[in-house]
Simulated scan of single mutants.
Amino acid sequence: MNLFKALSYKEWMKTRKFILVAFVLLAAVAMYSYIEIKYAIRIQEAVNVWYGFIFQGMSVSSLMMYLIPLSGISMAIVQFVPEMTNKRFKLTLHLPAGETRLVSAMLLYGYGVLFILYLACVIFLSVIIGMVLPSEVVCMMVSQLLPWIIAGLAGYGFTVWICVEPCWRQRISNMLVSIGLLSILFVSIYPETYSDFTCGMILVLASSFVFPFYSCIRFKQGIQ
């Protein structure tokens, strides 16, 4: 536990500015979505706006489709690129603990921070959108956000996998695999499309956690 606390503090010092920026951006986009819907209701009347969301599958906050995955990818870059460029990752792996435990602690920190950010975003968005739209639309919005949140978390793990990989040729392969797996989560933006694909989303998320360990082993073995 002491090791996890120490690593978490180190990661916090490295990522705290990014976390603040990501939080502000997510809150700003949520407020923008609220203002946009309020304006649409004023211009088109509430019934027409509700019809578009309930029957036509319109997105309450389409910008989240881009911001959430990008925040996960950016979190991995901020957390691991300095480790690789400054050659601190090798020192981290030589701490008095198993490499699996060390890498797990670093990954769990990143996943945990992103999960808290996304959860806060969903709650905040649900509250403010619930002021102007019925609960059915709010539930549809949450179901629409879910695959994007999984993409943000998985995008974090896959980006770590790419960053830690010591061989550039293998990095390109990792990138192609990552893009292919993440693209599954953007087949459709229609709400509840992924309601029967829960196991698939779990597998994508789980693979994003497991794959970095393979590149970590290659890095420790000194593969170029």
Rank of each mutant, 00 (worst) to 15 (best):
V137N: 03
Y111N: 04
W161F: 14
L205C: 05
L107Y: 00
L117P: 12
L146P: 05
M175Y: 12
M106N: 13
F186W: 08
L102T: 09
C167W: 07
I162K: 09
M106R: 15
F209R: 02
F158C: 10
V160S: 03
R218H: 08
V142K: 13
G130E: 07
L117N: 07
E99W: 05
P212M: 03
P191L: 03
P147F: 05
Y111E: 04
I162N: 10
G180L: 09
S208N: 05
L117K: 07
L181F: 15
M106F: 02
Y109I: 06
V164D: 00
V160Y: 09
M131K: 09
L203A: 15
L107K: 07
E165Y: 09
W168R: 11
S135H: 15
G130N: 11
Y194W: 08
Y156N: 02
S207P: 00
I202N: 00
G200H: 05
Y111A: 11
L205M: 02
C139Q: 14
I128W: 08
V137A: 13
F158Y: 15
S135G: 07
L205S: 02
C139S: 14
A105H: 08
V132R: 06
L117H: 10
L108N: 11
G130C: 06
Y111F: 15
P166N: 04
S178P: 01
R101C: 08
S135D: 12
R101V: 01
V113M: 15
R218P: 00
M106K: 15
S195V: 09
V164Y: 02
E192S: 11
L107V: 06
V187A: 12
F197E: 09
V127Q: 10
V103F: 03
L185F: 13
L95Q: 15
I128Y: 10
R218I: 01
I116Y: 08
A97H: 13
I116N: 01
F124K: 04
P212Y: 03
I184S: 04
L203K: 04
G180A: 12
I202Y: 03
V187T: 14
W148I: 06
